[in-house]
Design a protein around this nucleic acid. Structure first.
Lengths: 192, 192
DNA sequence: GCGCGATGTATCGACCTGATACATCGACCT
DNA sequence: AGGTCGATGTATCAGGTCGATACATCGCGC
């Protein structure tokens, strides 16, 4: 999750932890930043796994120099990123994950984009059912505020579904225009 | 946070951990349930602090009886709940907290309701500014999808602000109708 | 009489957050 | 020059939370 975001950002250009964090909040939401207590351990793990390198540019000029560490993707890191982007499984429809996956859609192939969009939509529809069924169960026994909160929540979900519908339609139109061309030996998909 | 939700729910009626968890998901979002790994430790802490009691109804009929623990608010617990409800500080405008605070608005006095609603709104407006300013900074350098994500996020925030505006208007009208009557010696407010 | 899904309690490792600490840099003020 | 202040930059830790997992009982239908 965070791993994907970091890899994707570093793929655009190498940068410091601090800048990474700022860019991250533009990608994760676009609100909601993550904390350094999460980022730095993640960076260390990524480095240990060989997906990124950490150039410590302080070697010059001896003491007192400000510590700056520039992180860069390795070849393995790029491969890893491609893997992650291609994998559009159920974990990608979560609130948290979806935003990140979507943010890197430009680097994702059309098939995966569609799968993620549709997965997200069905996840949302599932929620609508849960909510409406639980509302009819507790029929009228809630106070005004609780009711209003649920109504607003439900409306938000409906809005997101409509948004997804538009996106899906656009994607399909795009796919129809240049059919299944992703410059890659199409791994034979089991139809539907 | 979770503490408030548990206290508020138990104030309506005593219940088991399992039911508590189900009700919680009706209150926290109304999506997003919390896990038992969070709930039970919290219940234990609450019990240790003397805010709730845990009646273990298995004492009868000897062995093999199914374990059921009914949690109930104590007098201290009710006091604690009132404290928590009255305290409408900055921590209450967070995404997570706000939903819970709102769900118990029926038990909250009008003044606090208004403070929380307005605090939430200013929090949201702050976000709008951040987002729009960072958008003009990175002017045009984002791809189509990132842009679309930000646009949608911003639109959601705008919608919530409008929602809050309506709620605030309603609250004010209500306060105007029965002026400052909360059956409680009005602690002399510094005007405005 | 037997399986199966809902009810019910509980814990553990892995992960994340918010607070905190420390240090340097550039810019502006006096 | 000297000073303060906010942004940049790296890092850790206690405490809280999640998801998975384990166990056991209840009521129901077949």
């Amino acid at each position: 999750m965070l791993e994907l975001a970091v890899l994707g950002l570093l793929n655009e250009s190498p940068m410091h932890g601090y800048e990474l964090n700022k860019r991250l909040k533009g990608v994760l939401g676009p609100f909601r930043a993550i904390s350094y207590g999460t980022l730095y351990p993640c960076l260390n793990a990524l480095q240990a796994a060989g997906y990124i390198t950490a150039d410590d540019s302080a070697s010059e000029v001896g003491v007192g120099r400000r510590k700056k560490t520039t992180y860069k993707l390795t070849a393995e890191g790029k491969e890893r990123l491609q893997e992650q982007l291609a994998e559009g499984g159920p974990s990608a429809w979560d609130d948290e994950s979806f935003g990140v996956r979507f943010a890197f859609f430009a680097q994702t192939d059309a098939e995966t984009r569609l799968r993620i969009l549709e997965g997200r939509r069905s996840r949302l529809e599932e929620r609508q059912e849960n909510a409406t069924s639980s509302m009819s169960t507790t029929r009228g026994r809630l106070d005004r505020y609780t009711l209003e909160l649920q109504r607003h929540g439900l409306e938000s979900v409906e809005r997101e579904v409509r948004w997804l519908n538009e996106l899906i339609a656009t994607e399909r139109a795009g796919v129809a225009a240049r059919p299944a061309r992703t410059r890659r030996t199409a791994t034979p998909q089991t139809a539907k």
